[in-house]
Design a protein around this nucleic acid. Sequence first.
DNA 1: AATTCAGACAACCGCGTGGGA
DNA 2: CTCCCACGCGGTTGTCTGAAT
Length: 318
Amino acid sequence: MGRSPCCDDELALKKGPWMPEEDEKLKNYVEKHGHGSWRRLPKLAGLNRCGKSCRLRWTNYLRPDIKRGKFTEDEERLILDLHSLHGNKWSTIAASLPGRTDNEIKNYWNTHMRKKLLRAGIDPATHRPRADLGLLTDLPKLLAAAATLGGFATSLDVNPLQLQADAAAANHLVKLHLVQKLVEAITTCSLPPPPTPNLNLMALFGSPPSLPTISNLFHNYLSNYGGGDQIAAVADHYSGAGAAAGASSCGLPGSSGSAPPPMVSASRENQNKSELSTSVEGSTDTISTDSPISNDTWDSLNLTDLDDDLGYWKDILR
DNA sequence: AATTCAGACAACCGCGTGGGA
DNA sequence: CTCCCACGCGGTTGTCTGAAT
């Protein structure tokens, strides 16, 4: 198929933002004659633009039936519904929203709605809960917050001397360790393993996302794999709510009762443990296995700035 | 007051497709 | 049937503006 000769070969043509007088010329011409052939229109209307640019300007801005201003909640809902039905077919979606252009809807989607969905833990492409463990990039923050609850303080096994030597490194290592604990807690429940078993813990520390995303991870996992009691127990445990119904089946610290056989094999658990090494300040440290962390060390970690997030986290997970 | 940064939106670019010659 | 043109679409980039530092 032949390509449309675009405006590229007409280098003298103006590009960029439209001037009011250009708008006026275009508007007057189209209202008088209709647009006809967009390719011929610029010459006829006395515009130094390519037809494509004129068409875009007319359809996205100058058309008299264009509705400007904020999208209403109804419109937003409709966009959401239609997008779940048609995907990124912006023109199809726009056809159901009188006065809105495909470009406007696309922009609104990309700048507002997409982010909203992501924050809610929903994949904007599929409109389904995000089940990928890439969400675990939120874990450091979450787990640091969990640490302030002291839930792990007595069971942590990080070498305290190492930690005290460098508070920043210690913080990092503790977070890593907490990640491990959380992953273990999830994977030793009588549930199928999470979708991405070969979790690279190092990758979790790329960027600190938000706690809502983490909570959604739990809920996604719940909805995908069932086992509400178990995950609720994990959540309760991390939010300091103590043992909840079903905690026993997760083998959580402090839980009682007979736990069903874990779905995760010993070798898998060992694999997770073996991944618990990290580079701090250029050196690679491995968390030792048996020394409990001291209260002083906890105090030195300065994790209290996460209190606000923790409150949100508690609310969400309940 | 100056600078930096992020969000919002306008505009552009390149490709696919339909239809006429 | 093939070629070419014009249009429309979706993705991407550019620009502006206001908030934050």
